[in-house]
Design a protein around this nucleic acid. Structure first.
Lengths: 229, 229, 229, 229
DNA sequence: TATGAATGAGTGTTCATTCAT
DNA sequence: TATGAATGAACACTCATTCAT
């Protein structure tokens, strides 16, 4: 089904190749294809993504895609894995383990908000993979390990908070993450529909800052034993 | 791209036509097509949906779809509108205006939780329309009006809560709805991926009940002035 | 690899459709496709055959082929089965069981010679299927039964010949068939190469008649106990 | 069209190159390519053969094939010529001119039987070239001369046999060769299909020995004036 | 001499849509 | 109103061939 093209979602991470010298560089070609594929799969979903378009976006010959990635299905799997790698990598950079528990929770919340806003393609990929019933991620190696790191980090933060007597007891790290993520995922994944049916401001810079404030208050009121102090 | 078939998402709501007498019934044919199209678009998205499959699901001839709905694009628009009609209709049945403010908020939260869980196709349709950049809903008549009713209802509840001195002041009804919906939307729209990367229990009956409890507490602690009393 | 087109091998069994009225006739379309496919697979082999060309030859849209036959592989299987049906049908029409043993053998030999000459595509299909290591015929239902009929017929002829004291004892019907067929198959399947390396007359009408005489003499001298009488 | 892989037909006659020192050896590279090409064209035919596979089989880079042989078509021509060279060379080694006529015929028959059985790729190449309507061999220099030697040899044998009063008069050497070859070519070129439709034993060692006996008897009864004596 | 990257024309197959009845 | 046949433009994927190093 035809879709309007929205330039915001056609990131140009790919450097146009110098027309004179196609630079026979396998590594770069591979990267270009991956970048193009991430954009394409995010925008159009698994069934809507077109190999032709990916090749065009990457500025490479279609056959290269097959040579480097096998087929559309495998390319999609690489894209999906890459998406998870990127968000977890961002989280790791926060060095949450070095922060005091309350700050750590707030930092994670802010990072999540910005990551979701800055990487709408990540949300789209999640959509797609769930529409596929998780067919690909289910059989992907190393994903559980990759993500369990975040859970362990959160668990440790909650434990320290409990120990210090500031966090409620028995809070599950996964539940906490679902709440934090959910408060931003819903409006940011559905910006287009929500801005039509509810409020055109949703998704703007100001809206996000306000939203972060609300979410922070909500999470902390729930988590802290005496939030007023 | 090939997808595994999940029977749970292929409901057979359509009564098989009596083979003897096709009973040329325009109204019923139309309804059957619409029901089939809702299932199909929800499962496969706009680009993944297949006219052939819709016809088969509806038990009608493909040409009928074109005769009644014009083309795939227009059929999708009707499906999308129908989805909004259904959820708002559900909300209206709650008669929130007759409940005291706190109960009203809790009821809306519970309804939303169950509606999302029981109608995963609705979440999928939202996904799809957002992946389309809201192309269809943006040009759809009467949608704003349809949805503004819920906002007005919530606004009235918040107003009464403020008046009674139990709700915080200045809370925006849209923000509140985004929070309530978000707490359930994220885990329920991404059950497949989340159950792989975080916790296989996500989405089960017990999980939902527990989740409702947490969400209730979170929302009320945020909203009520003195939640403890 | 490009091949010259030899009009002799592009039989026009297909009636050109009246341009005005495409005559929506499923049965005829199916037949046209099958006829075109037989020609194409015979000429080009399994890997060389082109769906596009089959569609063009049959004067139908490519998609019809998939609608009626599934895919190239299945179409090939139907073609192969049809080839066997045709030769065995021809043999059955001979009513060998009603002839005296010697005449029966001669008639079978003559039929085989003419069938091979008149249906070079049958020989080509055999080539192809053997180049495929019999992949398709091995899994084809009913083929053994279809062909075992001929063997039983021959066995009965040999038995009667033995009984009448004119045929040698213990001759195996399969061996006999291999000899008869072989005497014609080799020159007729390899007409092109043989006419270059040995004798340009191979395959002509006169050559075939002479060949039949030789083969008859050879087979009978071997089979009859007292060929002179 | 996908084919199952039969390891029997994928001989590894090519010595793996010492990875350390590619030993830039033009002659050896050429030979390796030719050997690989013979296997490939025999197995898959002209249209089915793949340059990629030939390169892999030969353990050389694809571009080498183009550098040494021009293109696929020309490579095929070299393969075809080589095939004829090999069989005629085998026949020449028999020294038929030194044997008495009857023995010579029997020896040729036995050699042909074993050569066909041991070199199925030769039969496949013949198939292929005939399926191409002899396009390549027709324009190949020196082929007629190459093959006419066998005919002359046979002619001389028949002449001596006639002279000695043991062979029938006027037998044509080409006809005789067609008979001898045909008795083995048909079953050996079609082993796969015949073993399905008629008898799974066709092509085995025991079968061949039995077959040689029958063929010998058949040819001699036809050729000798008084076979009993 | 040799390699691996790159290309463009195919090649099997699917799918939204229309037509004749 | 309803059906099944038919179409043409895509679409995923392959392959012979060339290019830069």
């Amino acid at each position: 089904m035809a879709r309007e093209i929205d330039p915001r979602y056609t990131p140009r991470t790919i450097q146009p190749r110098t027309s004179k010298d196609p630079r026979r560089d396998a590594e770069r070609t591979k990267k270009d294809i991956l970048a193009a594929a991430m954009a394409e799969f995010s925008e159009y979903g698994d069934t809507g993504a077109r190999i032709d378009r990916i090749a065009e976006r990457a500025g490479v010959n279609k056959a290269m895609i097959y040579s480097y990635f096998g087929n559309k299905e495998e390319l999609y799997a690489v894209v999906l894995r890459e998406a998870y790698l990127q968000i977890r990598e961002g989280e790791n950079k926060l060095d949450l383990e070095k922060l005091d528990p309350k700050t750590a929770v707030v930092e994670l919340l802010r990072f999540t908000a910005h990551h979701f806003r800055d990487n709408p393609w990540f949300l789209r990929l999640l959509n797609t993979e769930n529409q596929r019933h998780g067919q690909t991620i289910r059989n992907m190696e190393g994903v559980t390990k990759l993500n369990s790191h975040l859970v362990e980090l959160l668990r440790e933060i909650l434990r320290r908070g409990e120990e210090q007597g500031i966090f409620r007891k028995g809070e599950d790290p996964v539940d906490l993450y679902l709440s934090i993520a959910g408060l931003f995922y819903f409006p940011l994944a559905n910006t287009y529909t929500l801005s039509v049916v509810f409020d055109p401001e949703i998704g703007t810079e100001e809206w996000l800052e306000k939203r972060i404030g609300q979410a922070e208050e909500m999470i902390l009121k729930y988590l802290l034993i005496e939030p007023d102090k």
